[in-house]
Structures are given as C-alpha cells and as structure tokens.
Design a protein around this nucleic acid. Structure first.
Length: 772
DNA sequence: CGCATT
DNA sequence: AACGGCTAATGCG
C-alpha cells in the first residue's frame, strides 16, 4: 500500500527486545494510520576512546557493532568510533562508561528524532509498505514500512476530543466525564456516569474507539488527567489511552505524552497565545466566544448532583465544548502544523517542546551530512555569567512631532549571516573580529553552517511572501501568510538558543558576539545621525526613533525612507521605516511610550501604547481605561482636557462611582514553596483563599482579586469570581491612589503632580448623581 | 530587594 | 535517548 500522511506524533515501542519506530497521523481523506519500522537502531559516537573505554564498550551485551569514523570536532578532524546497539532506553547507562562527557557525541537524541533526521523526514511523509491487521493499534490502518520519505505538506482533517470531569469536593469522588468531539466540521458530544472505576474504563474505550489526534480540555494537564490517573491506579485499571495501548506519561510534572496523540490543554494554549487578563474558563469563554458557562455551583456540587443530575451533566458537557471551541478559535492547530512543516518534526513535538528542539532538527541534519560532530546538551555545567543584551537609548520626557520609527529586519539573524557567526567558524585566526574580541573565519574561507541555514530560511520566507502577494484565494493566502510568519519566528529563535547556556552547539562567545555587533551597529547609527544633525529620540536593540522635522506626512516618510535606504546600503543589513508617529509621548522611561500613527496608511489614526499599564494584567481595567483616555487627550494635544478628565476620574473612584469589575487585579502564582515571604503577596493570599473555597487552582495559574484594605500589612484582598462579588467592599482610596499615580506620571510632564491631581472639590462635579 | 510583567 | 531560547527595564509592595 502507498499513501501520504501528515504526522501527528512519533515514538517507539519495544518488541522482542528491540525497538520499533511508530509514526501516527492522517491521510488526505482523514483516515488514521500507524506506520511501523523495525530495522532502525540507536547509535552514538565517542572521540578517541581510551583502551579501557573501548574494551568496556565492546563487552556490552546490547552492542551491535563498533565502526571507525572521522569527525570534525572543534575545527579539527578527529578519529572516533560509532557505537551501535539495540536498546534506545539503555543508552543513558552506556554513556556513563566514558569519563569525559565532552567526548561522547549525539548520545542524547530521542530515538524518534534520530529516525526523523536519518530518513530526512518532514511534517508530511510519503510511504509504501504492507498493511497488516490492526492488532492493538487504534488507527484505521496499520502499515509495516518498506520505504518512507518527506513529501509536500498538506492539512488533512484532524480529530479533536475535548473532555471535562466533575467530582465531589469533600470525598473526591468522580461523578461524570463529559466530552465533545470535532471532526470534519461536525460536533458530537456525550457523557459517562456510573461507578468511578467504570467511568474510567468506559472513557478508555471511548478514546480507543474515537481515536482522536488531539486531546484537549480546560486545565486537563494539571487537573483532569491526574485525577483520572488516580482513579485508574486505585482501581487497578490500565489507562491505555495511547494509539499503541501504552499509558500516558507526564514529562516534568507538566506536559503529557500519549503515544500517537497530542495533548493540548486549552488553558495552557490560551495563556501562550492571547495572555488574557483572567484565565478562568468563564472569563475566556465570554471574551473569545461571547458565550457564558453553565451556572452550577461547584462549591456545592454534591448537593447539586443529588438535586439535579441532568443539569450537572449538561454543565460538564458544556465545559468540554467551550474548551474545544476556544482551542479552535485561537487557531493553534494550523499554526503548529505549519511550524511542523518549517522545522521538520512531528506536530506533537512542535506543540509541546522548546525552541532548541526545533533548531536541533535543522542543524543536526546538516551537521551529520557534513561529518561535523554533534555534542550533547549540557545541563550541569551551566555558565553563570550572563550575556550583555541589547542597547536601549534613554528618552527625554515630552511630546514629539512627526517621529519616524526605523527598524532592522530580523536584526540578529542578519548579523549572524553578515559576520558569518557560527560554531563552525569561530576560530582564533578568524578575519572577522567582533567588538568583544571573538574571531570568526571569513565566509570566503568557510561559509558557516548556521549563516547558510539562516540564508535559506530568509529565501524561503521571501518566497512565501511573494506567493502570498500574488494569491487571490483567501484561504490559500492565509496559509501562505502563516507559513512566512512561522519561518520568521523560527529564524528569530536561533539567537536565543545559541545564547543559552545548555545548548549543544552553544559557545558563550557566539551569543555575546551577536549582541555586541548589534550594540555597535545601533550606536554607530545613532552617532552618525546625530552628527548629521538628525535628532535621535529613542532606540531599543534594533530600532531608532528620529525626529523628521517635517510638518506633513509625505515629506516625513520620504525623508526617513531615504535615511533608511542609505543605512541599508552602507551596512548591508536592511532597515525599514516601520511607522511614523505624530505625536509621540514619553514620560521619560525606557520601553514605555505612546503615539498616534500617521504612517503606514492602513494604521493611520491608531493609538499605539507600549509598556504602559494598559498592557499589563496586574493593573486593573479602570487604570488601563483611564490612561488610554488621557493618552487620547494628550496625543490630540489637548493637555487641559487631559488634566480635567484625570481629576474627574480620580474623584469618581475615590467616592466609589465605579463598577467592581473594573477593579480586578490579576497575577500568576507559582508553587507556594517558591516564595520567600508568601504571606506578604496578594497573589499567594488569593490562591490560598480560592483553595479554601474549593476552587480549582494549580500553580502557574493567574488569580484575580479585589483589594479590600490596603492599610493592613500585608494588604487584604478577596478573590474575584464573576457574579459572586456582592459582599466585597473595595478599598476605593487605594484604587484612587493607584490611578492618580499612573496618571500623574503622564501629567507631571506638563507640571501637574499627583497631589494636585487628587486635590479637587468633588462636590462641584456630580455628573452621575444628576441621573437619579 | 523580591516578584511579575512587558 | 528527554526539562530548559535570551536580556533590559519598569513598578508595586
């Protein structure tokens, strides 16, 4: 049989003492597949092993063969051996035989990645083989592979299953599992009730029969899955949720791995994608879907269950439905499928692992092809010293006219290309010298592996952008846009990974050279512009804000474009006019500014605010809204209006003329042990109170509260739960003070301080009362 | 200064 | 075969 597949996940199982690689996914028609490959074995390298080491390796019962090879290691050709064995799970044990871990190479690459690299596979594969009986596998088809190769990507229908559990609070008894399944645009839902052990047994059956690619739910990682696992282990039930009958495994107390499926917690994904101000399912459902949750009282779920079982079941199913719709709404599935295409690893690994895994996938393949040694990651000898980062130019308080924002296109990747920065080119006799003294060989002598990869990615991105411009079909256009954006994200993640302390190809000097070149470049531009009489107002890492001195937009744009072109040509790195702001406001702090956009045309009139409270979840809505209003006045150059309105807002808050929803403050909470003085922190206090009330809480979650007495030490707060606020009395003075502080940072630029803002006769204005 | 956030 | 991109900077308590 022959077909093509989008790979959802890859793993291996043991069969007759040896490994079998398994790939899972769906074809264009939406049929699910298991692909099996039996003739692949694990291996690693050792550079110049000693006699004793070689003897010990040779004696290993698991050994298949030892071969002599040559490898490029730290710029030299070295003799090495390639050690092949049968059991991937025993490799950590064999690693210990070698004294100096620097001499063992590529002995920490997960087996399914080894398979992926060696067969040069991608997000989609073309295969041929014999279809066999399904046996224990849950997919529509099971195929023993003859051949497999990478193929052009496509997006088949994937099946998503969302579930939610309800349990009693006191006895922690499982009451019901509700679920919703989405496939080819259709929804199907249902529930399971009965004895707890039976519920879990039936759930396992359901998952096996439905065979979903993605499993989701709201906070299933930290709550529902561990709960079900607990019931299963108490009842002696094997939780065979995987496509190959294995049980879920928890990685680092956080992610779950279920062979053949992606576990994608809707909460975790929402957090990562949209940073909502509050993270409860109720809040996110309303914000994203405009739908509210059922109104079952979870605190008295035992009573609700006795009184009206149907209602609790409906509520449970609704929660699973909402989580599913949220996951669909934030469009993560397509996005991660496309990143899988760009980074050449299975969907599951893109979704649930870090940037270094993506970079590994591209870099290790090239290194292997060129005989370049692949060291292991090093999590033990972490370098304590930090790399110096980007340069941030200070900004004077004030209101500035016609400011152009120029910024570098992919600055760090561009510098890595320009200066040939790579672990393969770093050398004491290099011709290129970074500002911190590190030397790199010139590209004429030896083109670096990383610069070459980055150049390929730049070309790929430009290709997608060009295709996007010429595309008329909106669906296809969205796809192309997503692809170019994933390529950009991947390019930009190179610097971070190479600046990290643990990464296999990292050298401290590589990371610091990149930022040093960047600082030199940006400072050079600032000095140059200043010497030409062009005033630089601000700059951060890869951007410069200049005063154009023009009064109309067209001249401001053409003036700054010509400056950008001149710099681009001179430095060989592209710099573009991102925006023109008129005016730009600063209160004199770095990374904080507001401006009104006059260019580009499609953004004209928009207000942009960076860094200020408006964007922060630990400021309350009223504070954000007040600041936005004041910025509106200021950016329309109405300073008196701003002052008048600021005073009005503050006096309104002070006298309690504000809805409680506007006073909610949210912050995340870690594991309590993490804190030195946990009792003094409002977020920890809130989490503890929530737990006492029997609410779901897991570390890492954002909690929301209202300050009720700021004069107590520590300040007293009450958890905020929507529609349950009747008995909370906010400390209005506290809120008024905080708003005053925020607004005065702006008004002080115009010589009005906090005290003058607060000192108003509130009797004069009583706008609200006039309505009654 | 510790902590969370951008 | 398995944890893991980076720093600069602000502001609250």
């Amino acid at each position: 049989m022959e077909d093509e597949l989008r790979v959802v996940s890859a793993s291996y199982i043991t069969e007759n003492g040896g490994p079998v690689v398994e790939l899972f996914g769906r074809n264009r028609k939406g049929e699910s597949f298991t692909l099996l490959y039996r003739n692949f074995l694990p291996y690693f390298y050792v550079i110049e092993p000693t006699g004793t080491e070689l003897e010990a390796l040779d004696k290993i019962d698991d050994k298949v063969k030892i071969e002599n090879v040559k490898l490029q290691y730290r710029g030299e050709t070295r003799n090495a051996i390639k050690f092949t064995c049968r059991s991937p799970w025993r490799v950590p044990e064999f690693r210990k035989i070698i004294r100096d871990q620097n001499r063992i190479l590529a002995a920490d690459i997960p087996f399914h990645f080894r398979f992926y690299y060696d067969f040069d596979l991608g997000s989609c594969v073309k295969f041929s083989g014999n279809e066999v009986e399904r046996g224990k596998f849950t997919t529509d088809h099971v195929v023993v592979l003859d051949s497999i190769e990478k193929t052009a990507d496509f997006l088949p229908p994937l099946k998503i299953m969302s579930f939610d559990i309800e349990n009693t609070i006191k006895t922690q008894r499982l009451l019901v599992i509700g679920y919703t399944i989405s496939f080819t645009g259709k929804y199907e839902d249902g529930y399971i009730v009965g004895e707890p052990a039976d519920i879990v047994r039936q759930f396992v059956e359901l998952v096996r029969k439905q065979d979903p690619d993605v499993i989701t739910g709201y906070n299933i990682d930290g709550y529902d899955l561990p709960f079900i696992e607990g019931v299963a282990s108490k009842g002696g039930i094997e939780l065979k949720l995987a496509r190959d009958m294995t049980t879920p495994q928890r990685i680092q107390g956080q992610f779950w791995r279920i062979h053949g499926r992606v576990v994608a917690d809707a909460w975790w994904n929402v957090k990562r994608e949209i940073h909502p101000k509050q993270e409860t399912l109720a809040f996110v459902s309303i914000e994203l879907l405009g739908e509210s949750k059922g109104d079952v009282d979870r605190l008295n779920i035992d009573r609700e269950w006795e009184k009206d079982r149907e209602r609790v079941i409906k509520y449970c199913i609704k929660d699973s439905y909402l989580a599913l719709r949220i996951l669909e709404k934030i469009d993560v599935l397509d996005k991660y499928e496309n990143m899988s295409t760009v980074s050449l690893i299975p969907l599951d690994d893109v979704w649930n692992s870090g940037n270094s895994t993506l970079i590994d996938s591209l870099v290790i393949r090239v290194a292997d092809r060129r005989g370049i040694a692949v060291p292991m990651n090093n999590f033990i000898n972490r370098n304590e010293e930090k790399i110096e980062g980007g340069y941030v130019h200070s900004i004077e308080p004030g209101l500035y006219d016609m400011v152009a924002v120029l910024d570098f296109k992919s600055m760090y990747p561009s510098l890595m290309i320009k200066y040939n920065i790579c672990f393969t080119t770093i050398s004491e006799d290099g011709e290129i010298i970074s500002p911190n003294g590190t030397r790199f060989v010139s590209p004429e002598r030896k083109r670096g592996l990383i610069p070459e990869l980055l150049e390929d990615l730049m070309r790929t991105r430009d290709k997608y952008k060009l295709m996007m411009r010429n595309e008329t079909d909106p669906g296809r256009k969205r796809y192309l846009n997503s692809m170019q954006s994933q390529v950009k994200i991947l390019m930009n993640s190179f610097y971070g990974v190479f600046a990290s302390s643990f990464y296999r190809f990292t050298d401290q000097n590589i990371g610091s050279s990149i930022t040093a070149f960047a600082r030199e470049t940006i400072k050079g531009i600032i000095n140059d512009l200043n010497s030409k009489g062009i005033q630089v107002i601000y700059g951060d890492t890869d951007s410069v804000f200049i005063k154009t001195g023009k009064t109309d937009v067209d001249s401001a744009v053409s003036f700054s474009v010509s400056i950008g072109e001149e710099i681009s040509k001179r430095l060989g790195i592209q710099i573009e006019v991102e925006r023109v702001l008129d005016p730009l406001f600063s209160h004199g702090a770095k990374k904080r500014y507001a401006g009104k956009v006059v260019y580009p045309e499609n953004e004209r009139g928009n207000l942009i605010v960076r860094g200020y409270e408006i964007r922060r979840t630990d400021s309350f809505d009223l504070q954000s809204e007040a600041l936005t209003e004041i910025f509106n006045y200021i950016l329309n150059r109405d300073v008196n209006g701003a002052l008048r309105r600021a005073k009005e807002i503050i006096s309104d808050v002070k006298s309690g003329r504000v809805e409680i929803d506007k006073l909610v403050i949210s912050r995340s909470v870690k594991d309590f042990e993490f804190y030195k003085e946990q009792d003094s922190l409002a977020n920890v206090q809130t989490a503890k109170k929530l737990m006492k009330q029997g609410q779901e809480f897991v570390p890492g979650m954002k909690v929301s509260w209202i300050v009720v007495d700021s004069k107590k030490r520590p300040q007293e707060v009450e958890p905020y739960i929507p529609n349950q606020t009747s008995n909370i009395k906010p400390d209005y003075q506290y809120y008024a003070d905080r708003v005053a502080q925020t607004l005065s940072r702006v008004t002080e630029v115009f010589s009005v301080d906090e005290t003058s803002l607060k000192n108003v006769d509130i009797k004069k204005k009583s706008t609200l009362e006039d309505f009654f």
